[in-house]
C-alpha cells in the first residue's frame, strides 16, 4: 500500500496547484538529532492546504503530524525542502520575520487552551491585535464572538470558564485577526465529547460561513470527520488522502495502520 499511495497523492497535489493555496509544503524534511540518535520526523512531505478548506491531518502517534503542522506554521525550523504560507517562503526567514508572519497571517488553537489567566476573555481574544498594535475590526469581532457563542462571557477570566468555553475563546482569538490560515493542534484533546463537538462545529462554520482556512491535527476520527479533507501521515510520509470523510471511513483507514504496525 505504501508503495502505491505517494504517487497518488502527488497527482492530487499537482491537480490542485492551480486552485488558491493557503499553505504548501514541498519535499519537506525534518530531522531531529544527529548521528546515531538521528530521527527523521518528516521525510520529503509535499502537501497543499487550499483556501477556504478544512483539512485534517491524521496519523498514529509519532507519525509526524504535529511536526508537519509546526513546520508549515513557522513554529519549527525545516531541515530541507520548502514550506510556504500564501506566497511567503518560510525557509530562510529570521525569527523576527517568522514572528511577524505568525502574528499577521496565522491563527493558532492548542490542545491546552493556552489562554493568559491574567486577561479576561475579550482581552485574550484581542491579544494578537494588541501585540500587533492594531485596532480590532469591531464588526468582525462581533461576528466571531457571535459565532463561538461567547457574548455573555467576555468579561470572565479563563479560570471562570469551562474547558469548552476556554477553547471557544481560543478559537475566537485565532479567528479575530482574520488570519490567512488557522492551525489547530488537537483542539478537542482536553474536552469532553459535547464541548469537542461544539468547537469542531465552530471550526467548520468558520470555514463554511466565514471563508476561513483551517488545518487541524488530530487522532480522533470523529474530529476528522468534520473536515473537508483528511491527509494521512505515517512514519513521516503522506500515505493517503480522503475527501468528504466520515468517522467510520476514517476509522477503517486508521485500523489499517494499526494492523500494518502490528504485522510488520
Amino acid at each position: 500500500m505504501t508503495t502505491t499511495t505517494p504517487s497518488g497523492v502527488q497527482t492530487a497535489a499537482r491537480t490542485t496547484a492551480t486552485a488558491a493555496v493557503a499553505a504548501r509544503a514541498t519535499d519537506l524534511t525534518k530531522v531531529y538529532g544527529q548521528g546515531e540518535t538521528q530521527v527523521v520526523a518528516l521525510d520529503g512531505v509535499s502537501v497543499d492546504f487550499r483556501k477556504a478548506e478544512f483539512t485534517a491531518i491524521m496519523g498514529p502517534s509519532g507519525s509526524g503530524k504535529s511536526t508537519l503542522m509546526h513546520c508549515v506554521a513557522g513554529l519549527d525550523s525545516i531541515s530541507s525542502g520548502s514550506a510556504r504560507i500564501g506566497d511567503t517562503e518560510l525557509t530562510g526567514l529570521k525569527d523576527k520575520q517568522l514572528t511577524k508572519l505568525r502574528r499577521d497571517k496565522i491563527g493558532f488553537i492548542f490542545q491546552a487552551f493556552n489562554l493568559l489567566p491574567t486577561l479576561n476573555a475579550l482581552e485574550n481574544i484581542t491579544l494578537p491585535m494588541d501585540i500587533a498594535g492594531r485596532k480590532p475590526d469591531q464588526a468582525w469581532l462581533d461576528t466571531v464572538v457571535e459565532t463561538v457563542g461567547l457574548s455573555g462571557r467576555l468579561k470572565h477570566r479563563p479560570t471562570e470558564l469551562s474547558g469548552g468555553q476556554q477553547q471557544r475563546v481560543a478559537v475566537a482569538r485565532a479567528l479575530a485577526g482574520r488570519p490567512e490560515i488557522m492551525f489547530a493542534d488537537e483542539p478537542t484533546g482536553n474536552l469532553d465529547s459535547r464541548s469537542g463537538a461544539e468547537v469542531l462545529g465552530f471550526l467548520r462554520n468558520s470555514v463554511r460561513e466565514l471563508g476561513q482556512t483551517v488545518v487541524m491535527v488530530t487522532h480522533d476520527p470523529v474530529a476528522a470527520s468534520y473536515a473537508d479533507r483528511v491527509v494521512f501521515l505515517a512514519d513521516g510520509r503522506i500515505v493517503d488522502e480522503m475527501a468528504d470523510p466520515t468517522a467510520d471511513r476514517v476509522l477503517d483507514r486508521m485500523k489499517d495502520f494499526d494492523a500494518k504496525g502490528r504485522t510488520s
Binding site: 513554529l75 525569527d95 523576527k96 514572528t99 491563527g107 493556552n114 493568559l116 491579544l127 501585540i131 500587533a132
Partner: peptide, 16 residues
C-alpha cells in the same frame, strides 16, 4: 513556559 510559548506563537517577538 507554556504561556510564553503561546505568546511567541501568536506573534510576540523576542524583544518584547
Amino acid at each position: 513556559q507554556q504561556e510564553i510559548g503561546m505568546l511567541r506563537a501568536i506573534g510576540l517577538d523576542r524583544r518584547r
